[in-house]
Each structure stands twice: as structure tokens, then as C-alpha cells.
């Protein structure tokens, strides 16, 4: 692994953005970028190709051979026999309420923290921020006990509540900073017109925060959807497992059948891929928002 900044900046400085002579450095730049991206994505492409082959073909000829046949049957098999359909449905049943809960509760705290001065404001803000950086492994045992004591263990709710609680720190942080950038005069004007504080939150600040919410929601969707450890800990019933945990059952079921396993993994990744491609702008917005100003 090498790093490139020095040479690359050189090429910038030489040309500047305005003039574009096709210089050799420019060609080298493209060769480098294209080459790099291809190599970078090779495991991904390799996985796709594998999923379209049969295990017998790979066993006999190795991966680096021309496929004797292309087959799509691994996907429907993983979908049905591997139960990926059930697991994916569970993932949605868990992710969507968790996402809404996270956004809603975070927006409440974010509003309070962004728009009011009160004793404890900073402290609460720091608690949230510190929480986002917690290695959550420290919570595993107690949350397991807690969800067991509350009767939530082995239900969707155990995961939903845990995700909401755990993601709230990050969301509050982002939304609070977003709300801070809204002009305060709007609120003051509304207050004079007799709007209630709730009305201000709900009818004025929330609509203006939609871009921030969209960004953070896209990001949170993938984070919650991709969770593995909590699912491993809090769900025991196979029919309730989200797809990340279900993959391990799938792997147990098809052990040495790589095409099947990889096909299942790719199916599992599909929703987040779709969200990413469709909502790219928000997604990247969320990342940069989260990184503070």
C-alpha cells in the first residue's frame, strides 16, 4: 500500500482547473484512477462472478477459469431455501420502526439542545456525543439482561429499542447542529404569534430540518440494517433474525458451496445498495454532516 498525495497534488498545481491540455500527467492520472478503482472493486466483481457459477465448476477448474456455464439459480435457492426472503423481511420490520423512532426521539432532544438555553444543556449534549463513541461491546451483557427482564428478549422490539437508544446519540448530535444553523428569528416571530413550543418544533423547525433528517436517516438506515452483534445477542428465534445474523445460518447450511453463500450475501446487501444508489446525495450529506463542521 502506498500513498500518493505529493505526486498528485503536483499535477494539480501544474495545470490548475481552467486549462486542460491533455498532458502525460493527465493520462497517467486517468490510468491510475481507472486501474485503482478496478483493482479496488475486484473482490466485489469476483464475488458476483462466483455467485453466477456452480460449486462443481469452481472445485474442478478453480476460480480463475472461464466459467463452463453461467447460472442464476443460486439466487432463487438462497432466497427460498436459504430463507433470505424471511431474513430480509425481518430486517425491514426491525429497521423501519427503529429508524423512525431514532429520528423522532433525536429530533426532540436536538430541538431542546439547539433552541433553548437551560442548565444542563451542555452536559446532556456531551453525554450524547460521548455515547456515540462508546464501544458498544460494553453494553452487551447488561442490555441482554435488561431486555430479558423487560420481556423484550427474542422479539423484534429488543432490537428496535436497542437501535433507537444506541443511534440516538449520533442523530441528536447531527440534528442539533443542523437546527443550530436555522435562523432564530423564525421561532421568535412564531412565538409572538402565539405558537406553542410544540407547534414551533413540529410546524416550523421540523420542516426546515428535513434535509438534515433525510441525510441522517439514509445513513442510519444502513447502519441499523447492517447490525450483526445485537441481532446475534438479542434474537434466538430463527424466524425473527435479520439478514445479517441469518447469513450465518445460511453459511452453516451451505458450508462449502461458495456460490450459494456469496449469492446470499449479495442478496443481503441489496437493500443497502439500493438505498445508497438511489439516495446517494443524502447519504454522503449524512456522512459529512455527522463529521461536524
Amino acid at each position: 500500500m502506498t500513498t500518493h498525495p505529493p505526486t498528485m497534488t503536483k499535477s494539480t498545481a501544474m495545470e490548475g482547473p481552467k486549462t486542460k491540455p491533455i498532458s502525460t500527467t493527465r493520462i497517467l492520472l486517468y490510468v491510475f484512477i481507472i486501474g485503482f478503482t478496478l483493482v479496488y472493486m475486484a473482490p466485489f466483481f469476483g464475488a458476483i462472478i462466483t455467485s453466477l457459477r456452480t460449486q462443481d465448476d469452481i472445485t474442478l477448474n478453480g476460480f480463475w477459469s472461464i466459467p463452463t456455464a453461467i447460472t442464476f439459480e443460486n439466487y432463487p435457492r438462497a432466497w427460498e431455501q436459504g430463507n433470505v426472503n424471511r431474513y430480509l423481511l425481518n430486517s425491514f420490520i426491525i429497521t423501519i420502526p427503529a429508524l423512525i423512532g431514532t429520528i423522532f426521539l433525536s429530533s426532540l432532544s436536538a430541538f431542546a439542545l439547539a433552541r433553548y438555553k437551560f442548565p444542563g444543556n451542555q452536559l446532556i449534549y456531551f453525554i450524547y456525543v460521548a455515547g456515540t463513541m462508546l464501544p458498544f461491546q460494553i453494553l452487551i451483557l447488561p442490555i441482554f439482561l435488561l431486555s430479558n427482564a423487560t420481556g423484550l428478549y427474542n422479539t423484534y422490539w429488543s432490537l428496535i429499542v436497542t437501535h433507537v437508544a444506541f443511534q440516538m446519540g449520533f442523530c441528536t448530535f447531527v440534528l442539533r447542529n443542523f437546527m443550530k444553523t436555522l435562523p432564530g428569528e423564525i421561532m421568535d416571530a412564531a412565538r409572538i404569534d402565539g405558537a406553542s413550543e410544540w407547534g414551533i418544533y413540529w410546524k416550523i423547525v421540523m420542516p426546515l430540518t428535513v434535509p438534515g433528517i433525510a441525510a441522517v436517516a439514509t445513513l442510519e438506515f444502513t447502519w441499523i440494517f447492517n447490525d450483526y452483534l445485537w441481532a446475534l445477542m438479542l434474537i434466538q428465534d430463527d424466524s425473527l433474525k435479520p439478514v445479517t445474523a441469518g447469513l450465518s445460518t445460511l453459511q452453516g447450511q451451505f458450508i462449502t458451496n461458495w456460490p450459494m453463500i456469496v449469492a446470499g450475501a449479495l442478496l443481503a446487501a441489496l437493500p443497502t445498495l439500493i438505498v445508497f444508489f438511489a439516495l446517494q446525495r443524502y447519504f454522503i450529506g449524512g456522512l459529512t454532516l455527522g463529521s461536524g463542521k
Binding site: L89, N90, F92, I93, I94, I96, P97, I100, N154, T155, Y156, W157, I160, D237, L240
Partner: peptide
């Protein structure tokens, strides 16, 4: 989703 959560049920 909530309905689904209830139906698909714990």
C-alpha cells in the same frame, strides 16, 4: 411496520 412487527410477531 408496526403492524408487521406485531403480525410477524415475536
Amino acid at each position: 411496520a408496526l403492524i408487521a412487527a406485531q403480525c410477524g410477531g415475536p
